[in-house]
Computed example of a mutant assay.
Amino acid sequence: MVIGLKPDKIEQYKQLHANAWPGVLEQLNESNIRNYSIFLQKIEGRYYLFSYFEYVGDNYQRDMKKMAADSVTQEWWKLTDSYQIPLDSRKQGEWWTTMEEVFHHE
């Protein structure tokens, strides 16, 4: 997934994730999210976040609804969303833009 990042929020975003809230991390685990990484890159003068995770559950929609209903996660998203710039290319209902996987090797 990809999303823009406000240039004046880069350091705050890094600090926040360097000290991620325990409740948010617990919810990720409970929602069957593993190996979650977020990368930052400046491209043509703009900053972008790229995220990757592995889902290990059996009902993605249910787990994402559970995560979205969690009050700690809602507070985290309220804070982090204010740092981000959604892309015009995102699908309706998306905050982060999903990307098409064109290659995978295990």
Results as ranks from 00 to 15, higher is better:
T80Y: 10
M99Q: 14
K42M: 10
Y60G: 11
V72R: 13
G23W: 13
A68Q: 11
S51Q: 13
Y48R: 07
N35V: 04
R34L: 06
Y55Q: 01
G57T: 04
W96E: 12
E26G: 06
E94C: 10
P7T: 04
P7I: 02
E106Q: 13
G57E: 01
T73R: 12
D81E: 13
K78D: 14
E54Y: 11
F103Y: 14
K9T: 02
W21A: 13
M1Q: 15
F50Q: 04
I3Q: 11
G4E: 11
D88K: 06
H104V: 08
H105C: 13
D70S: 02
Y48N: 07
R62G: 03
E44F: 08
D88W: 06
L5W: 02
K42A: 02
M67Q: 07
Y83E: 01
K6G: 00
Q74M: 08
Y83A: 00
N59H: 09
Y47I: 10
I85R: 05
A18G: 07
S31P: 08
L16R: 09
V102D: 05
T80E: 15
L40C: 02
I3H: 13
Y36C: 01
S82K: 08
W96H: 14
R46H: 09
S31E: 03
I38R: 00
S71F: 10
G23A: 12
L5F: 09
E26C: 08
A69S: 06
L49H: 11
K14V: 15
L40N: 05
Y36D: 04
A20C: 09
K66Y: 09
Y83R: 03
P22H: 05
N59Q: 08
L25K: 06
E75F: 08
D81M: 11
K6I: 00
D88T: 02
R90T: 09
F50A: 01
I38A: 00
D58L: 00
Y55H: 02
K66D: 09
I10H: 00
I3L: 13
H17K: 06
I10S: 00
W96L: 10
L16I: 12
L5A: 03
E54I: 02
P7Q: 01
E30S: 12
K14D: 09
I33L: 05
Y55A: 03
K66G: 06
S31L: 05
A69I: 03
Y13G: 02
H17P: 01
Y36I: 00
Q74D: 07
K91F: 09
E54H: 09
V2K: 15
Q15S: 11
V2M: 14
Y36A: 05
I3M: 15
W76E: 14
G93S: 09
I38C: 00
Y13T: 00
W96V: 14
Q41K: 14
K65Y: 07
D63V: 02
K91H: 11
P7W: 00
F53K: 03
I85A: 13
W96K: 13
N35G: 11
F39Y: 12
N35T: 03
E54P: 05
Y48A: 13
L28G: 12
K91I: 04
Y48S: 07
I33G: 04
